[in-house]
Simulated scan of single mutants.
Amino acid sequence: MTDKPFTGRTVVVTGGGTGIGRATALAFAGLGAATVIVTGRRKDRLDETAALSPAVVPVAADVTTEEGTRAVADAVTAAGGTLDVLVHNAGVFRFTPLAALDETAAQEVWDVNVVAPLRLTHRLLPLLRSPGGSIVLVSSRGGHNPGPGSSVYSASKAAVHSFTRSWAAELSASGIRVNAVAPGFVRTEAYAANGLSPEQVEGLFAGVVQGIPLGRVAEAEDIAPWITRLAEPGSDLVTGQVITVDGGMDVGGGAA
């Protein structure tokens, strides 16, 4: 297998300004992609990603909206009109007990985590290579292992798992594959976005690592290779799968 499996290909990565999205965009560029379109709502962070590789094209867009999805489609058209890989990485989490439900925050979680991938996939489907196209969704182990205070977030990721299986069945006749990666705890800026200080984040990780058999939380660079691998031509018999990357939390065996 070639070490540049995406040579000449066009990729879209949502939430490409930070964290897993940035690591994934750079991974695709390193594997030969001609154009990696990164989207998100923060232009400054997208520009930072683009500065790291000439293959990366920043498109500031809110893909929960029709205008935003159209901007991404226009960028794909400008890149040649055929999309090879679509990565739905953009996501938000808000952990609150049911009794303290914030309906505005809950709606944001649902819009970003569920409505956006549905709307963007619908918009880009006519541009997706058929056969040979690949969709990879970034989910969470919370989608199949919810915990207290995460009812809306976990439900949104369970919906992503449903999309993965349903779309895989529907699009297989067109030769388009659909898979998902479900990370556990990953060191990203998302915790700060939820109001946690760096010290609080490290305290959280120090606690959860006791329940991770492999002994550490993930970095964004640990997740990106699973996304690119699922999209590679060499994975052409893999579809409808949710791959959990959580250091073994789902199988147990960590410290009590």
Rank of each mutant, 00 (worst) to 15 (best):
L101V: 12
H122M: 03
A100E: 15
A71M: 11
L124C: 10
A105T: 02
A106G: 13
L127I: 02
Q107G: 12
V87S: 08
L83N: 07
V85C: 10
S139H: 00
E103F: 12
S154L: 02
K157R: 13
S134H: 09
A90L: 05
D102I: 03
T82Q: 13
Y153T: 04
P117A: 13
E66G: 00
S134F: 04
L98V: 15
L86G: 07
V76A: 09
T82W: 00
L98I: 14
V63P: 05
R119L: 15
A79W: 10
V76T: 02
T64Y: 07
L98R: 00
T96G: 00
V112F: 11
V85P: 09
V109C: 04
L125N: 08
G91T: 00
P131T: 04
S134I: 01
L98K: 01
F95S: 06
L83A: 11
D74Y: 05
H144C: 01
L120D: 10
P146N: 07
V72H: 12
T69I: 02
G133S: 10
L125C: 06
V92D: 11
A71C: 03
G133N: 07
L120Q: 07
V112G: 10
N89Y: 01
A155T: 10
R94S: 13
V72G: 12
E108C: 00
A106W: 08
I135H: 06
T104V: 14
P126E: 08
A79L: 09
E66K: 12
V109F: 02
T82I: 13
S140C: 06
A100R: 14
P117F: 11
G149W: 08
A158Q: 03
V115I: 13
S130R: 13
L83V: 11
H88N: 15
L118I: 10
Q107D: 14
R70A: 15
S139F: 04
S130V: 01
L83T: 08
A75F: 11
A100Y: 05
P117I: 11
G149S: 07
G147S: 12
T121S: 15
V63Q: 05
W110D: 00
A75R: 07
A100I: 05
V76F: 12
D111H: 10
E103Q: 11
T69W: 01
H122D: 05
V109A: 06
A106T: 07
F95Y: 15
G142D: 07
G147E: 08
S154K: 00
V85S: 09
G133D: 04
D84R: 05
F93T: 11
R119T: 03
V112Y: 09
A158G: 15
G132M: 01
R141N: 06
H122S: 13
V138R: 02
V114Y: 05
P131K: 07
A155K: 01
V63G: 00
S139R: 04
V92P: 06
T121L: 12
V72W: 07
L101N: 08
Q107V: 09
D84M: 08
P148L: 11
L137I: 14
T65A: 02
E67Y: 02
E66C: 00
A75Q: 07
A75Y: 10
V136Q: 05
L128K: 06
H88S: 06
S150H: 02
A100L: 12
R70S: 14
N145W: 12
L125R: 09
V112I: 15
